[in-house]
Design a protein around this nucleic acid. Structure first.
Lengths: 329, 329
DNA sequence: CTGAAAGCGCTTACAG
DNA sequence: CTGAAAGCGCTTACAG
């Protein structure tokens, strides 16, 4: 009553193990008649290939590691879900690594074990970390980040922020605040910021640095709340606020509601990520949707190519975004 | 420049592979001197054991499958996160399976491959499904569900609902509605319902079946919304609503806000699960916290015992809950 | 198109 | 306390 092995099937079918292996792997090298005999034997014995033997012999695990900083923030949960389903669709399995700090995030990439490759949604990684501990497996990065050593799938952050800003300007709003992640006083930079800046410039509206508020990002919702409280306390007037992501927008809306500011009447609020949570808020959150399905599929494709031996320099694929106008602005 | 193997280490240390294996596995059977030589050799060569060889030889993968219906509902995302971190703490790795329908949920349990055991948060499973396809690996169930074939870790659902109901009664509320999951007209049953019923009975308040509203549960938030719209449309008076979980409470609050009903002034609202999302709502959601950390740790412990050979009938561990009173009721 | 044999990198009785 | 050998269940050149 022990599990049947490849040899059992071979004996049952009257052929060699090699032939059974060929049939199981769907390879050529088996006449139709032999193939049929093997398939019958497999069905009769209820044979299922043992992954351990296969892994040891082939050097492939058929498994991909997905690395995210956490699962309690909707963006990462939804991204992980997309990736896992996409990996399964590709006939592989996955292992989800939750890397809650820089050390574990680095280890997940530099010491990946028991997987053919890694897809990482980075939070703390920087290029220089890999000088001493290079990735142990082919690695693809999903989402923005400061690293340039892997293949990258990036979302249209510039495009998204530019379109959000233009959309608010189109409503006649002129005092458009920005809720940003990072230390107070460190000037914003990067694609999202440039999209905001360029849209204002195009409309001839001066960018007021006093309208930029910072959240510390230990928790996205909490830091959006914190940033908005600070912005309100500053006494500056504003009629819209662009938040760097949905989670911070949710925190910001909470602060506005507590202070009795009406959304979108007094202030329009926008997010970025198009999370389910934002869609269910009242008022529902205007946001930018990053086409996460396409991003996940692209990340899996790039990684599989690397696993198959693709060398060459790091590649970058830019995936488009969609503006999702809802009730908040 | 190929990876060093156990034999390389043995040669370097001047001993047999078996001894190296003993040292790596932290087993007795190696003098202090030998152990030191082996450890030096390991460090010198940068040896890391290959999981494939280990798996094939030992019959153990060191990996546990975690099965959830999805990751975009906060309860499942947070539960998966807890489990994965707990599994890692136990020195094992995990593979997260997202089973979006009954067939894949059953397959994840009945045809688990390449793992030592399975922890499932069931959504569609029923006992009779396992008559024909029994679990292929030791399996533990986390959360309530209609199955009795595995070890189960269940939360204090009865206690939680009873305490929530008593809490609302203590505020003087008497018309306490219930937002439930399931088909219209199918009488509610189970621990949560009994907690509600018994608390009302204890207070001498008659249970009004007209105050029970049903959501179809294809999406929790959406079905909470749907159920509340129907309840409001029924014209029945109520001053509180107990929702079967946080996600449905979030949908219900959205409906109340849309209709201009004040929370908690006109109607108190409570959830169940204590999700981060509920805590960030305005007004923040009163809920019951299931001690998810303890549940996850218990599930992992039970499963490891089964993997180690524990036989015996299915066990059940009841984990307590905490009442979390916030602003919504 | 198919076979017999070697080998992937470990662990595990079996000896001593 | 340690060694030599067999074996886990596959795949992969090598032959024919």
């Amino acid at each position: 009553m022990t599990r049947p092995t490849l040899d059992d099937v071979a004996r049952e079918a009257g052929c060699s193990a090699k032939t059974v292996s060929n049939v199981v792997l769907g390879r050529p090298g088996a006449s139709a008649a032999t193939r049929a005999r093997v398939e019958q034997a497999i069905a009769r014995l209820g044979y299922v290939a043992d992954p351990s033997g296969r892994q040891l012999a082939s050097g492939r695990t058929g498994r991909i590691a997905v690395v995210v900083p956490d699962l309690h923030q909707p963006y990462f949960a939804e991204t992980a879900e997309r990736l896992i389903l996409e990996i399964e669709r590709a006939g592989m399995s996955s292992t989800l690594v939750i890397a809650g700090d820089q050390e574990s995030e680095l280890r997940a990439v530099a010491s990946a074990q028991d997987v053919d490759g890694v897809i990482v949604c980075p939070h703390w990684l920087r290029d220089d970390l890999f000088d001493r501990s290079p990735p142990s497996r082919p690695t693809v990065q999903l989402g923005s980040g400061p690293t340039r050593v892997f293949d990258r799938v990036v979302m249209g952050e510039y495009e998204g922020f530019r379109r959000l800003t233009s959309h608010l300007l189109g409503q006649g709003r002129r005092r458009i605040a920005l809720i940003w992640t990072g230390a107070e006083g460190v000037a914003p930079e990067g694609a999202r910021y440039e999209g905001y800046r360029d849209a204002l410039e195009e409309a001839g509206v001066a960018l007021d640095p006093g309208l930029i508020a910072f959240g510390s990002d230990w928790d996205r919702r909490a830091s959006g709340f914190e940033a908005m409280i600070a912005l309100l306390a500053s006494g500056r007037r504003f009629d819209a606020v662009l938040c760097v992501n949905d989670a911070m927008a949710i925190g910001a809306m909470r602060a506005l509601r507590m202070r009795g500011v009406r959304v979108p009447g007094d202030v329009a609020v926008t997010g970025f990520d198009d999370t389910v949570e934002g869609a269910h808020l009242v008022p529902s959150l205007t946001s930018v949707s990053p086409r996460t399905g396409e991003m996940a599929a692209t990340a899996v494709r790039l990684l599989r190519e690397r696993v198959e031996g693709e060398s060459g320099p790091p590649r970058e694929v830019l995936v488009g975004v969609d503006l999702i106008v809802r009730d908040s602005g």
